[in-house]
Write a protein that binds this DNA or RNA. Sequence first.
DNA 1: CCATAGTTTTAGAGTAAGTCTAAAGATATA
DNA 2: TATATCTTTAGACTTACTCTAAAACTATGG
Lengths: 133, 133
Amino acid sequence: MDCNVVDRLKGRGIIPSAHRVAIGDYVLRTIEHPSADQVWERVKTSFPVLSRATVYNTLNLFVRKGLLQELILAEGKVVFDPNVADHHHLVEEDSGIIYDIPWDAVQVSGLDTLTDLEIDSYQVVARGRKRRH
Amino acid sequence: MDCNVVDRLKGRGIIPSAHRVAIGDYVLRTIEHPSADQVWERVKTSFPVLSRATVYNTLNLFVRKGLLQELILAEGKVVFDPNVADHHHLVEEDSGIIYDIPWDAVQVSGLDTLTDLEIDSYQVVARGRKRRH
DNA sequence: CCATAGTTTTAGAGTAAGTCTAAAGATATA
DNA sequence: TATATCTTTAGACTTACTCTAAAACTATGG
């Protein structure tokens, strides 16, 4: 699963252009939940000729192809998570940092009794903060 | 709890100006989860002299005072929910409609075992659709 | 190696949600 | 009535994001 980015793009039918690989090299490995503009700022440092539109196009492409998950959890802006397996989230209000919570750490029951709802997916969104050990 | 809007504002230390009451008359009773601009459009029909800034100021004031809950669940936009009691949400992707799910309908366990997290609040966010009976 | 058709990238304009500002208008109290 | 405080306003500004049309790539067949 953690093979190189070129192969992961090809595996989803995405032509691995230099720009896309540069973006993927960052966004498919990070645990930072960056926004699109944060991805742009970051990737530009190592790959200077890069327009904003390309970053947005590429991120949206990755989402469509299942390489990224789009999250709308906090501060009115969309962030991206390369962890596309089901999992829950903790939003740290002060810092805006978002942490992943493993799926198995939390159990949710009762959704199946809501017979008037057809549920495709769900997650727990928690607000709070990470303890400074 | 469902007493008139003027008293509810006063109860939170908010001066019940005509504008605020007009906005509250709609937003504190609706189950529609409107965005700020939707509130503006709607309230303007019955209260024409109303600027966008006033609507945003008032909604933010209501949130600070605990009369409204701000939700960031779908489509990158903030919506408001006068149901400030804890509850869960279902986001209908196609329509953008958000439905409340009663707190007691769902049980979540395991969050307390995450000892490195200090959790203030949480909710289940489900994606799917309401069955057309 | 060239032609060409398709794909990708670009700069910059456009859009929409939301915030800020400074002035004007209300309101309350003494 | 005077004055201090609070509220509202129009419109400019900001930020996140999308669109557009042209330019630059890339792949393939001949």
